[in-house]
């Protein structure tokens, strides 16, 4: 099955090399060093990402075509909105909703990685509770919280916040090719977070939805980084709250509601009570 789907992705992208990096329930994600329409320098950097939503044979073809188109388009529109808001996320390069294809830039870049990987690397390289570890991690975690707050303040909800869906990379120097990219250094405290995978994202003004977004991230942190999850969760939430409060009186009121809902959601574990 998978081979046919991969073949189809290649058929849609003749002459463009693709490397499969993930196969979810809904879509395949490929990287490519070749841009569909920009001249690509002959590096082999996987600078571009192709997300492909293949047809699902179990669905009625009319329903399937509609879903593929709608979801691809929805994700592309959301990414475009994020570009307008200057919120760090992948940018749309090309979209073909009919075929379920979405091209975007690879925000991880040559020296970026997922927050999940970053936390693991730092935990290996530094002593627990050390000043060094805190100096590297805390500020960045606060920034990540602030980034999520920025998203929520604009009434956008990610829908699948895990530490694999938040990338972190060295702060980009001004777009000037002459400045060399800094060498990879895990202990670099000057990083910036970028959100990826908005396939389940949506617009929502509801505090409940934002609370669920945070809750999902908290659960993800607990399960992938169990030892220090409490510390990380605190830093993330602090960064989130501080960003809200920077938004003036409006922000100060809205954050109260989100935090209240977060408490509720934590109590009942995101799921509604059953009625038999």
């Amino acid at each position: 099955m998978a081979e046919n789907i991969i073949k189809q992705a290649h058929a849609y992208t003749a002459n463009i090399p693709l490397a499969l990096i993930s196969q979810g329930a809904e879509a395949l994600v490929f990287t490519s060093p070749v841009h569909p329409y920009l001249p690509s320098p002959p590096t082999c950097a996987p600078d571009y990402i192709l997300k492909y939503r293949p047809p699902k044979p179990y669905r009625h073809p009319v329903l399937d075509a509609q879903l593929t188109k709608h979801r691809t388009l929805s994700e592309a529109r959301l990414l475009h909105k994020l570009a307008l808001l200057d919120i760090p996320a992948p940018r749309v390069i090309h979209v073909n909703p009919k075929h379920g294809l979405l091209w975007m830039n690879n925000v991880a870049g040559p020296h970026g990685f997922s927050v999940k990987q970053w936390v693991w690397d730092i935990e290996l390289a530094t002593a627990p509770n050390s000043a060094l570890r805190e100096s590297v991690m805390k500020a960045n975690m606060l920034q990540i919280g602030a980034l999520i707050a920025k998203l929520h303040l604009n009434d956008i909800v990610h829908g699948d916040l895990t530490t694999s869906n938040i990338m972190i990379r060295p702060k980009m120097a001004a777009a000037d090719a002459s400045v060399p990219v800094p060498p990879h250094n895990i202990l670099n405290p000057n990083l910036e977070p970028v959100l990826i995978d908005f396939g389940l994202g949506s617009h929502s003004a509801l505090a409940e939805d934002k609370a669920v977004d945070i809750y999902v991230l908290e659960r993800a942190v607990e399960s992938t980084h169990p030892v220090n999850s409490e510390t990380y969760k605190t830093w993330l939430l602090d960064g989130y709250v501080q960003e809200y409060e920077r938004g003036g009186k409006g922000g100060k009121i809205r954050i109260k509601e989100v935090l209240r809902k977060l408490d509720e959601v934590r109590q009942r574990g995101r799921k509604r009570s059953m009625v038999g």
Partner: peptide, 27 residues
């Protein structure tokens, strides 16, 4: 129709925005 609050000085960011508009037109 780019909002006035956008950072027009950053050409790369502006480019991403107009490219997005080009891609999404008509869909």
């Amino acid at each position: 129709k780019v909002p006035g609050t956008f950072n027009f000085e950053d050409r790369d960011k502006l480019s991403s925005v107009v490219v997005g508009s080009v891609c999404l037109r008509g869909w």
